[in-house]
Amino acid sequence: MLSDTERRELEDAVEHYPDKRGATIDALLTIQRRRGWISDDTLLEIAKFLEITVEDVDSVATFYNLVFRKPVGRHVAFVCDSISCWIKGCEQVQEQIKTLYQADLGQTSPDGRLTVLPIACLGQCERAPALMIDQDVYGNVTPEKIEQIVEKYK
């Protein structure tokens, strides 16, 4: 069941479109912010609210990099692996994360703290390599800085 707050947030989002379905992404991201990920049950609740089929919602949910159809850790680290960051050593950054938190790309650290995912160019190319944790972006990242950066995310 959608909570009252969730319902209110979805009602606000729907206002922006002539057709409720336009708010599919807004709905998925809004609910995900509260619940962490999009389960099958959540998908169904969103479908009911938007008055479209659950397949329609899933065809959108499975399409995007930032919609999680599996549970993730308490925080998500997005390692930019596009060209400017690759030139400047994003592979070493990712290796260091793997060493420190025992999580390869697509995995969550055993303590449930951090999920590590690759991400398309974060648009921080002038300060590559870049890393985004939840909504915070870090530039000029080096393997030595990782521990200090991740420290803030318990």
Binding site: Y17, R21, L29, I52, V60, Y64, N65, A120
Partner: peptide
């Protein structure tokens, strides 16, 4: 929610319609 193809104008239109 992050997908390169949305930069293509007709894909972007589908995305805005919630498809």
């Amino acid at each position: 929610a992050g997908r390169y193809i949305c930069g293509e104008e007709t894909a972007l239109i589908n995305a805005l319609e919630g498809k």
